[in-house]
């Protein structure tokens, strides 16, 4: 079998322990549920908490990531401010891809939620349902995405900011070029019968980005309505690009 590009091998090694992440987030949510009646979060609030905790894991992963860890904090912040929602959505989509079901969603905690349950949430729920449905559709249309491609795309998302916005142009450009080259090499060698899989994956990634922008706007709208729990990383990231 053809070799795996070194960049991808390194990224695979840096993948967080799923079981650990799951356990930590579950424990956090259970702590929320243990609170008194007046402090208890709504279902939507719990989902926000889940996203918030997943963000912590994402930041931890980024910190140890090749190239990223060489950057100054200023540049690291810019990269994460640019891509945090896309990373969250991408993580969610990949999970649905593995879950492989059209009418239910698998959460980071391992819980499965039926689409009908989501549809039954208090109004306005149509946007939630639309976003979730689209994420599942995106997952299903991308039925061939293996773990090597997943880690490489995740890294590309992390470094998807135009380098002109960063201090360390050289390092960021190097990261982008190496990751693109690795993905191209990998897809050409491992899926020789798939016409131009590399370009298809990048086009698909653009759709993931579009969905994440939509989800962010929706979340911001919910925040202005006072429905998103405050004082957390999620809110901070939401505000980072909006003065």
């Amino acid at each position: 079998p053809p070799d795996i590009p070194e960049v991808i091998l390194k990224l695979l090694q840096l993948e967080p322990d799923e079981a650990q992440v799951k356990a930590r987030i579950l424990a956090c949510l259970q702590q929320e549920q243990g609170k008194g009646r007046h402090e208890k979060l709504s279902t939507f609030g719990l989902m926000c908490k889940m996203a918030d905790q997943t963000l912590f894991s994402i930041v931890e992963w980024a910190r140890s990531c090749i190239f990223f860890k060489e950057l100054e904090v200023g540049d690291q912040m810019k990269l994460l401010q640019n891509c945090w929602s896309e990373l969250l959505v991408f993580d969610h989509i990949y999970r649905q891809l593995q879950h492989g079901k059209e009418h239910s969603v698998l959460l980071v905690t391992g819980q499965e939620v039926d689409m009908s349950t989501i549809a039954a949430q208090p109004a306005p729920s149509s946007n939630t349902l639309c976003c979730v449905r689209r994420s599942v559709v995106l997952a299903l249309t991308r039925s061939r995405l293996d773990r090597h491609e997943f880690v490489c795309l995740k890294f590309l998302i992390l470094f998807s900011l135009d380098v002109k916005y960063l201090e360390n142009h050289t390092l960021a450009k190097d990261a982008q070029e190496k990751a693109n080259a690795a993905l191209l090499e990998y897809t050409v060698c491992h899926y020789p019968h798939s016409t131009d899989k590399f370009r298809q994956l990048l086009l698909w990634l653009a759709e993931v980005r579009a969905l994440s922008m939509q989800a962010e706007e929706y979340l911001y709208h919910k925040h202005l309505s006072g429905e998103v729990p405050c004082n957390n990383l999620l809110i901070e990231m939401l505000h980072a690009k909006r003065t």
């Binding site: 910190r63 912040m77 901070e236 505000h239």
Partner: peptide, 18 residues
């Protein structure tokens, strides 16, 4: 008050404790 993303900065800056 402009958001300076203090929590993110802290998470990126902090030392790992074993």
């Amino acid at each position: 008050k402009k958001n300076n993303n203090a929590l993110l900065r802290y998470l990126l800056d902090k030392d790992d404790t074993k």
